[in-house]
């Protein structure tokens, strides 16, 4: 088992004729993901490396029976791409695009309420269930099938942390994205990892800004029995400055790393301060079992 993504995931790539879209369509297919089609309005009928391109998501779904999509279009078109994927009732849509206006995401997620689509991202690396499929941009070689679930707000930091779980491998690794308003959050992933029989331990990687980590900590305290390790980036980040990610900002004294670490520890989550510590702590947790 794994969460969200597996061998049965049938993916269409929105923006497949673009540079990033075509590159990652290929990389995902090489990894074993079922990439069944692509969408670029105006380029329907073409092919990218043998993958058929359609003019609309609706048409692509009809022809290919896709159940998921991944969005590589530039930010200014990504909002529309998200609406289209949600309207087509896909199960999962992963939005890689960075730079979507926050109020657009508010509208998109409002539109998604009560519909069946799970939105992952935006501004995220996607997800990978090692050995099965990847729906994202992460370097596949950095992951290996196993029993640790990883959920993170970051991209490359996720790869770094995941590399220190290599001894046990990963069930699924999910990057939820660095924007202030995102679809899938920590709690959604924690809940799925808790239920997933393959996942034996969970690593959550947070960063400054917002209160998602704090709410996730509450959830862990009440509902998660599996061991959880936490890491929070941005201990040295100055307040009021946006640290690369649109959502990574300490504003009005809230969203500090210190506050998040406290919340995690209060919930019984063991917090590590160096990526390398993840390896030893996991060993302790997983041999205790």
């Amino acid at each position: 088992m794994s969460i969200f993504i597996d061998r049965n995931t049938r993916v269409i790539v929105q923006g497949i004729t673009g540079r990033d879209g075509s590159f990652h369509a290929r990389a995902m297919r090489e990894y074993g993901t079922q990439v069944v089609g692509g969408v670029t309005p105006g380029k329907g009928g073409e092919e990218v490396d043998g993958i058929p391109v359609f003019n609309s998501v609706e048409q692509a779904v009809k022809e290919t029976h896709a159940n998921s999509s991944i969005i590589f279009v530039p930010a200014r078109f990504a909002t529309d791409a998200l609406f289209e994927a949600i309207a087509a009732e896909l199960e999962l849509v992963v939005c890689i695009a960075e730079g979507i206006p926050t109020l657009d995401m508010v509208r998109v997620l409002d539109y998604a309420k009560g519909k069946k689509t799970r939105v992952l991202g935006p501004n995220c690396p996607g997800g990978i269930s090692p050995g099965k499929a990847k729906l994202g941009i992460m370097p596949a070689a950095s992951f290996k099938q196993g029993c640790v679930g990883v959920v993170s707000r970051s991209g490359t930091l996720t790869y770094e942390i995941a590399s220190h779980t290599a001894e046990f491998g990963q069930s699924t690794v999910i990057g939820i994205g660095g924007d202030p308003v995102i679809g899938t959050n920590f709690i959604d992933c924690l809940e799925m990892f808790e239920q997933d029989p393959e996942t034996k331990a969970i690593v959550m990687v947070g960063e400054i800004g917002g209160t998602d980590e704090e709410r996730a900590a509450e959830f862990v305290k009440e509902r998660v029995k599996k061991p959880v390790l936490g890491f929070i980036a941005g201990q040295t980040a100055p307040p009021g400055k946006r640290m690369g990610h649109a959502g990574a900002i300490i504003s009005g004294g809230s969203g500090t790393a210190e506050g998040k670490v406290k919340a995690l520890e209060a919930a019984g989550i063991e917090v590590v301060y160096e990526p390398e510590e993840v390896a030893e702590k996991l060993k302790e947790k997983l041999t205790d079992l």
Partner: peptide, 28 residues
């Protein structure tokens, strides 16, 4: 994406999360 700080160890990193984690480790 660059923000000037007061210390003496410069860093060039890919990814905002990893960049923050690198800064934190320098301090640590």
């Amino acid at each position: 994406s660059y923000i000037k700080l007061e210390g003496n160890v410069g860093c060039v990193v890919n990814g905002a999360g990893l960049a923050m984690a690198t800064m934190d480790l320098i301090k640590r």
